[in-house]
């Protein structure tokens, strides 16, 4: 938290290196969030790039009130929603993306099993209604609280929490072979 504020301050004073540190610190999380929301790594990179460009351009007037991680996650989520709204696309998952997913498997066999599980999970997430997917990913990946998710989605906290729980239930059902609507 303190480090982020120092980095922001330095960037405001002209240090590109400070911005580089911010990017290196949060780029991976941002890309993961965007890829999970959009189901497309290439689009995710574009979204993250846009977010950091806007962030850099707004630095003169920027004033951090919460956590920088939360702020960037919110920006990514907003940008991803805008992108989907414009494209009116259902997010898809390319087969090759499974190879890009990190895994903590300790052996080749475990790697294959884990990769397959993650791929199924990825497909399952992409099947969720967008609001549920957004609630799940923002809470579990970006550590946003339900109050923050509610504000982002412009709903009450209860609704945000419900979307999260319904999303998890649906994922469990899909992965356990039970189709639910």
């Amino acid at each position: 938290m303190l480090e982020d504020r120092l980095l922001l301050w330095r960037f405001k004073c002209g240090s590109r290196d400070a911005f580089r540190v911010i990017y290196e610190k949060y780029a991976a999380d941002s890309l993961t969030l965007a890829a999970n929301l959009l189901g497309d790594s290439s689009t995710a990179e574009d979204v993250v790039q846009d977010v950091f460009i806007s962030f850099a351009k707004s630095m003169d007037k920027f004033h951090l009130r919460g956590s920088l991680k939360g702020y960037l996650a919110t920006c990514v989520a907003n940008r991803a929603r805008d992108y989907l709204r414009k494209k009116k696309r259902r997010p898809t998952v390319s087969v090759n993306e499974a190879e890009q997913m990190t895994s903590d498997a300790k052996s080749p066999v475990q790697l294959v099993i884990r990769t397959e599980e993650l791929q199924k999970l990825k497909h399952a997430i992409a099947q969720l209604p967008y609001e549920q997917r957004e609630a799940v990913v923002l809470h579990l990946h970006s550590d946003l609280r339900f109050r923050q998710i509610a504000k982002l989605q412009r709903v009450c906290v209860k609704t945000a929490l419900s979307r999260y729980r319904y999303g998890l239930d649906k994922l469990r059902s899909m992965l356990n072979g039970e189709a639910k609507r």
Partner: peptide, 26 residues
């Protein structure tokens, strides 16, 4: 384990992608 599994879903980027995106930002 569902929440744990979802947390493990990380997107891993290559160094080239990293440099390209950062370069575009600058």
């Amino acid at each position: 384990n569902m929440e744990k599994l979802i947390k493990k879903l990380r997107y891993k980027t290559s160094v080239e992608t990293h440099d390209r995106v950062l370069g575009n930002v600058f």
